[in-house]
Amino acid sequence: MMAYPLADPLVVLREEFDDWAVLFHPDTGAAVGLNPVGVAIWQRLDGRHTVPGIVTELTETFDGVPGSAVEEVHAFVADLIERGFVGSAQSQPG
């Protein structure tokens, strides 16, 4: 079954001068830095994209997206779930 990850709506994304960004979780006080690809992924964690769907869109925006991108994005999203920035992926699009 496809999973549609959804960012915690409380989490604040603040972009910086060089297109990196800080994610801040107000409940836990946790903060994490994202590179520009991470930012693009984050913006698609809206409960309507699957990981393969996100990767397809990334290949349209960024050069040189590797063949292993789906696994890498899965790992990235799993890490954000683990840190509490993303709710568990839902099985239906939101």
Binding site: V12, R14, E15, E16, A21, V22, F24, P26, G29
Partner: peptide, 11 residues
């Protein structure tokens, strides 16, 4: 001081 490195006011 960079605003992005500061705890957001609402938090």
């Amino acid at each position: 001081f960079p605003a992005s490195r500061r705890v957001p006011v609402a938090a």
